[in-house]
Amino acid sequence: MSGPLSPAGVSGTDVEHVCSAKGCRRTAAHAVIWNNPKLHTADRRKVWLACDEHEKSLADFVALRGFLIEVVPVEQLTDADG
């Protein structure tokens, strides 16, 4: 199992996760994990980060298309996500 996600070259430092919603700059608390099987291999896990306000709308957007895998707290992201 992979450990917590940390950006390349960043180790042991606080990293701010910014919401992926258009125009939002809030700190993300959630990770919307999805995969478009027409574009990505089955093991690929794409991630959109979401603040509390945008978690539902981002998750609903990918769920409507059948792409949603799961929504987890950003602290649970691993090296396999991204």
Rank of each mutant, 00 (worst) to 15 (best):
T13L: 11
Q76S: 15
F61C: 12
V62L: 03
S11H: 07
D79Q: 13
G12A: 08
V10A: 15
P73G: 12
K38P: 08
A63T: 11
V10E: 11
R65A: 09
D60I: 00
K22P: 02
A50I: 07
G23Q: 09
R25Q: 04
W34V: 04
S20P: 01
R26I: 02
K22F: 03
P37M: 05
G23D: 10
V74E: 09
R44M: 08
L64D: 10
E16N: 05
D43G: 09
D60V: 01
P37I: 12
A31W: 08
E53S: 12
I69W: 05
K46V: 13
V32L: 00
N36L: 10
S6G: 05
E16C: 12
G66N: 12
V71T: 05
S20I: 01
S11N: 09
L58R: 07
V47L: 08
E75I: 04
T27Q: 15
E70S: 07
A50P: 03
F67E: 10
N35K: 08
H17W: 10
D81W: 15
R45V: 10
G82L: 06
T78I: 02
G23E: 02
K56E: 11
V72C: 03
L39E: 12
E70M: 01
V74W: 11
V74Y: 04
T78S: 11
F67N: 05
S11E: 11
I69V: 09
R45N: 08
E16A: 15
R44T: 14
A8P: 14
G3F: 12
R65Y: 11
C19A: 06
L39P: 05
A21C: 01
N35H: 15
A80P: 03
V32N: 02
T41E: 14
